[in-house]
């Protein structure tokens, strides 16, 4: 379970503090898969970072009774100056996992070829996303926070990604940001829209999508 209680988050801007999360409270149960929509800059990624514990809220509290992945986006979790393999070794070390099996799993999933031994700085955005997702799947979290990276990569990767995420949806917990209705319909059971710092929940993904286009 992940529970947010009266979470407030603001960011400083040249014209004063901007309210990103305005007294947000909700609960995601184990096994649930929640889709998140919102305009650019509404604060979806900020919400993800708060859920993961990366950013501390200004007020309120966040409780977690399961392991939660880092926000899986185009940025974060992997270091640009290190190679993909060195990043994988780093992750294995800090999570206390065996290095060799993890390297194999990541390389098998991300399919980076010779790039696996080159600095992440040289990767395309899609390759970065593949590495980040591969690493997080190898660590095996209870809950995955996916921030718009499912569309990354070529046809083959999208297929692999789909298989893995469907399996997680069946056995684990998923919170996913996307602008693509198809993706959300595929992976999520319920949905929520973030607008003006407030979260509005919907029983079904279709209702959320309808409301989103009416925004």
């Amino acid at each position: 379970m992940i529970r947010l209680v009266n979470v407030v988050k603001t960011y400083p801007t040249p014209v004063g503090r901007r309210l990103i999360l305005d007294n947000v409270s909700f609960c995601v149960e184990r096994g649930q898969s929640l889709g998140l929509m919102g305009r650019n800059g509404a604060g979806k990624s900020t919400l993800m970072r708060a859920i993961s514990g990366l950013e501390k809220p200004d007020a309120g509290r966040i409780e977690r009774t399961m392991t939660v992945s880092w926000p899986l986006g185009f940025f974060g979790g992997v270091h640009g100056a290190l190679t993909g393999a060195d990043n994988a070794k780093f992750v294995a070390r800090i999570y206390g996992l065996e290095i060799e099996p993890l390297l194999e799993r990541v390389q098998d999933f991300a399919d980076l070829g010779v790039y696996f031994n080159m600095p992440v700085n040289t990767y395309s955005a899609g390759m970065r996303a593949r590495l980040s997702l591969g690493l997080s799947l190898a660590v095996d979290f209870d809950c995955y926070l996916v921030d718009e990276i499912t569309g990354a990569g070529d046809h083959r990767f999208v297929q692999r990604c789909h298989e893995e995420l469907m399996q997680r949806k069946a056995t684990g917990t998923l919170i996913m940001i996307s602008h693509a209705p198809e993706t959300l319909r595929l992976y999520c059971d319920t949905g929520a829209i973030l607008d003006g710092g407030k979260l509005t929940f919907f029983e079904t993904v279709d209702e959320m999508i309808e409301a989103y286009y009416a925004l």
């Binding site: 990366l54 992997v78 992750v91």
Partner: peptide
């Protein structure tokens, strides 16, 4: 230069 590693909560 290291904040990307703080995405892992134990860092």
């Amino acid at each position: 230069s290291n904040r990307v590693l703080m995405y892992h909560h134990q860092v």
